[in-house]
């Protein structure tokens, strides 16, 4: 409980900092007051229509990616299972790009998260088929590399074929992710799918706990493994799909956060789920503040920052896994 209070406090503090960092030189007090004023003045518009949705999306996306990472790692019993690394985010981006480039989103805005979700479902199912029930590291990572590479290449292909001269520049966004200039439209688009995902993953918590004792023991405890797998596939895909549809593929959140928090919650998957949700929210909030403070004029991508933090940790985890296998 102490950890929960600490993480909530951290998220709240980062939320306020996120609201007050950006291009505009206004004092913190002034900015926060403008958040509540209904006067149509420029500062109020910036706070209400640009900063607030941005901070909210950081929380939602961080929570979704953190929780999805913890759930996949619990189910496959492998600390390397992360939606970004194993191609789930990349496939979701491909789905989103297809929905935009076919013009579907012009007539039916929900096509964007739905297409991203479909891409993510496809990738999760493929991963579970390829990696097998135990999710051995080697097959998991190899399957992930293949799916990531294919999804990335197809995304680039679709964008390069677009008649729009700016579509090719979008490749960076879809591969690296960014929260720049998102709006409440994106919040409402993503929220229903994320809530579905959070609910399904929360419901799978007991099953994941039982699974730590092995599949036979879990079944003996009355866990329906087929049902658990289905909840996990839909839950993860909803979370990752919705997040990717509005912010592009933000990697490593689901790897770094559960890894940092695992020690604090006694390695119980059910506790790690909510802890990773809060930790993920804090992490993406912090990263999104950093991209604005480090290079304010350059629209640094979120994924760049996450990779700089996440990739060394990933290498460390591989090294550790190798030692265990030896």
């Amino acid at each position: 409980m102490k950890l929960a209070a600490l993480l909530v406090a951290l998220c709240a503090a980062l939320f306020v900092v996120s609201l007050t960092s950006g291009q505009v030189n206004a004092s913190v007090g002034e900015s926060l007051v403008a958040l509540w004023r209904d006067d149509g003045l420029p500062l109020s518009v910036v706070m209400q229509e640009i900063r607030l949705p941005r901070a909210l999306l950081a929380v939602m996306i961080g929570a979704s990616l953190g929780m999805a990472g913890a759930a996949m790692q619990g189910f496959l019993r492998n600390p390397l299972a992360e939606p970004g690394l194993i191609g789930v985010s990349g496939s979701a981006a491909l789905g989103a790009v297809l929905a935009i480039q076919t013009g579907l989103t012009l007539f039916f805005p929900l096509a964007l998260p739905l297409a991203a979700l479909s891409g993510a479902v496809l990738a999760v199912v493929l991963i579970l088929l390829l990696a097998g029930p135990r999710g051995a590291s080697i097959t998991l990572i190899l399957a992930g590399i293949a799916i990531s590479a294919l999804a990335g290449a197809l995304t680039s292909l679709v964008l390069n074929l677009s008649p729009n001269p700016f579509a090719a520049a979008d490749i960076v966004f879809w591969m690296m992710g960014s929260l720049a200039d998102r709006s409440f439209d994106h919040v409402w688009l993503a929220l229903p799918f994320m809530m579905l995902g959070w609910a399904l993953l929360a419901l799978s918590a007991r099953g994941l706990d039982a699974l730590t004792l092995g599949e036979d023991a879990a079944q003996a405890m009355g866990i329906n493994l087929a049902r658990l797998r289905l909840m996990l596939v839909i839950g993860t895909a909803s979370c990752v799909g919705a997040a990717t549809a509005v912010a592009g593929a933000v990697g490593f959140v689901g790897l770094v956060v559960p890894h940092l928090l695992r020690g604090f919650v006694g390695a119980r998957p059910s506790s790690l789920l909510w802890a990773s949700a809060l930790g993920g929210a804090a992490m993406v909030l912090a990263a999104d503040i950093a991209v604005r403070e480090i290079l304010p004029q350059r629209d640094l991508k979120l994924g760049v920052l996450m990779a700089l933090v996440g990739a060394p940790l990933f290498l460390h985890l591989i090294f550790k896994t190798r030692k265990e296998m030896a």
Binding site: Q101, P163, F166, F173, W174
Partner: peptide, 15 residues
């Protein structure tokens, strides 16, 4: 421009 690009999103931002 013809076709779609996410880069064009800011042109109709609610702000």
């Amino acid at each position: 421009y013809p076709g779609q690009a996410r880069a064009e999103d800011t042109l109709d931002h609610p702000a």
